[in-house]
Every structure is written in structure tokens, then in C-alpha cells.
């Protein structure tokens, strides 16, 4: 594992702790999009089905289990939070889920001649999870743009997700150059996903960094 991948993973891990800290210490899920969190849970469950059939490393196994468990817990907390009206969580997620599923059915890494039926369904779900992750942040972005008063911790949560994406891009450049490793589906979707965060970082700069005492 190269340093870019590791920094990316740690930033991703940090994003979970930032969000959990926000939910637990402020006892409020205001400003957190339930839709985005439910999409992330869907992403992790669909992508990490390989936990059942393939072992890569303890690092991968534990991270995957943590990502599924933490996102399930976050969805539970936000969904049951009475203080959150969710009035501004208005993104139409069917416009994300359905195209991602259709695209995954046509553009995926299945090898029908080689794999069994269940393994190929897993490949379709893997591609679906990649496409869905690329756009899953959109409901949260829409909320951030609508809400005047977003807590800094929610913004730091988003920033750590953005850093995770950026370092994964560096990781892929590194792996392509030194290992010849390259999954076009993941790379193209990853570039799209990272570009979506560019919009967030402009907001982050304006609303968080410019407010810091100089």
C-alpha cells in the first residue's frame, strides 16, 4: 500500500469520527443529510459483499466492517433524531440510484465466461456502488447550500471526504505508473466524484476558512 492510499483511507476514517462526534456531542443531526448517509450505507453494503468470498488483508476486512457498521449507526441516529426536521433534505435520490443501477448493468467488470452467476451479480453491484458513491454527496451538498447555519464540524466532515477522494486519485496515478494497476470504472467515477467536491471546497473556503481568526 502506498502513502497516498493510506492517507486517503485515514481521511475517510476521520470523516466517520467527525460525523459521529457531531451527532454525539451536539446531540443534533441538523445539517446532516439522511439521504446521503443512506446512499453511503447502500454503497458500502453493495461493494463489500466480497467480505463473504475474498480475503485481501486484515486491514481491508476491518476497514470494510467498520465502514458498514459506522454508516449503519449514523443512518440509525439521523433517522431517529427527533430534532431534525429534514425539511431541507429534498434531493430526489431516485435520479441518482436508478441511473447508477442502469449504468452498472451495462458498464461493469463481469466475465460471464469465467465467473459463476453470483460472482457476476457481485460485479454489477460493485460497479453500482462505485457510480453511486460518485454522486452520493449531492443531497448533502444541496443541504449545505440551502442552510445558512451549518456547523463547522459538518464542513470539516465534508472536507475530510474531499481529501480522501483527492488522495485516491494520487494513489491511482501512483499505482498505474508503478504497478500497472488500473480499474477504469473506479478511476473515471472517482474523477467525477472528486470534481463534485471542488464545488464544496469553494463553499468551505468562503464559509469556514474566511471566518477563522487571522
Amino acid at each position: 500500500m502506498n502513502i497516498f492510499r493510506f492517507v486517503g483511507d485515514m481521511s475517510h476514517l476521520a470523516s466517520f469520527f467527525l460525523l459521529l462526534a457531531k451527532l454525539i456531542y451536539t446531540k443534533s443531526s441538523t445539517g446532516v443529510s439522511l439521504k446521503t448517509q443512506a446512499l453511503y450505507l447502500t454503497v458500502f453494503v453493495c461493494r463489500y459483499l466480497d467480505l463473504l468470498v475474498a480475503f485481501v488483508s486484515w486491514y481491508n476486512e476491518l476497514m470494510k466492517i467498520f465502514f458498514i457498521a459506522a454508516s449503519a449507526y449514523i443512518v440509525y441516529v439521523v433517522a431517529t433524531s427527533t430534532r431534525n426536521s429534514n425539511a431541507s433534505d429534498t434531493y430526489r435520490v431516485e435520479f441518482l440510484v436508478i441511473p447508477a443501477l442502469v449504468l452498472a448493468c451495462f458498464v461493469n467488470e463481469t466475465h460471464w465466461s469465467k465467473g459463476g452467476w453470483s460472482l457476476n451479480v457481485m460485479e454489477i453491484l460493485w460497479a453500482f456502488s462505485i457510480y453511486l458513491e460518485a454522486v452520493a454527496v449531492l443531497p448533502q451538498l444541496k443541504m449545505l447550500h440551502q442552510l445558512e447555519d451549518t456547523t463547522n464540524i459538518t464542513m470539516h466532515y465534508m472536507a475530510s471526504l474531499g481529501i480522501y477522494r483527492a488522495f485516491y486519485l494520487l494513489n491511482w496515478v501512483y499505482r498505474l505508473y508503478y504497478e500497472g494497476y488500473w480499474h477504469p470504472i473506479a478511476v473515471v467515477a472517482g474523477i467525477v466524484q472528486t470534481l463534485l467536491y471542488a464545488d464544496f471546497f469553494i463553499l468551505y473556503y468562503q464559509s469556514v476558512l474566511l471566518r477563522l481568526p487571522s
Binding site: R5, D9, H12, D50, A54, V56, S57, N60, M63, K64, F67, E109, T110, H111, K114, G115, L119, N120, M122, E123, W126, Y168, N171, Y181, H183, A186
Partner: peptide, 10 residues
Amino acid sequence: AVAEEAKDEL
């Protein structure tokens, strides 16, 4: 994995 290379990323 079915793919040419194992998916070892998260």
C-alpha cells in the same frame, strides 16, 4: 475475484 485483478481498495 472475477475481474482480471483483485479489488484490494476500499
